[in-house]
Amino acid sequence: MKVKMQIRDLNFYYGDFKALMDINMDIERKKVTALIGPSGCGKSTFIRTLNRMNDLIENTKVEGEILLDGEDIYSKKIEVEELRKKVGMVFQKPNPFPKSIYENIVYGPKRHGIRNKKQLDEIVEKSLRGAALWDEVKDRLNKSAWELSGGQQQRLCIARAIAMEPEVILMDEPTSALDPIATSKIENLIETLKKDYTIVIVTHSMQQAARISDNTAFFLMGELVEFGPTSTIFTTPKDQRTEDYITGRFG
């Protein structure tokens, strides 16, 4: 099956405020899907519905369906902890735990029952290699993760997500707090990651979306204005609003 996640008639409310309106979208397997749009357009809210992070916010409501491999993630049969194991997330600001580099990686696997030291060591190496961080930190795995630079911390957070062996990785503006060099490292990493994972990334940089994504979704005021292959969106957008946004007329 080519489609990993299907979003059907999704509405989302913060109290009385309707933040997402009738979103329909197919997220392709092992592709990078970029979500763009001006601040407050609902792209972050949308990405957080995909692993039900919005459940943590009081007084919110979801309508519609989000299917992961054909199964509705909001159905009662789904345990939200299992869902988040399959759908990992990397946040805007690097948020490693105030523990060692090693502990940061094994934290999730340990909670899900892996106790074998050798197995954990393997997970650490594999995840750090996967996040292109291994060579930089292999000699100081027991040092605090907070001693790393911002870019390294963000790659550590990616490694922490990979360690759970998820199927989908959500990234909510993962480079907005980083300098250009660290940003390009993360972008290269995303290129490699899409071989194994389905990636959804929120970005406020259109250049970034154009560089790294296969599909792009343009959000405006809670609506999905246009969704399609990145090359189409950026060269021949169908909607006037998309064209205005990508040519820099607003946003």
């Binding site: 992070m53 902890e81 988040r84 934290y107 999730g108």
Partner: peptide, 17 residues
Amino acid sequence: PNSLREGAYALGLTKLE
């Protein structure tokens, strides 16, 4: 900071964890 809690929830931990 809430970002730490979110980081942990995103790994599929329960509230108690």
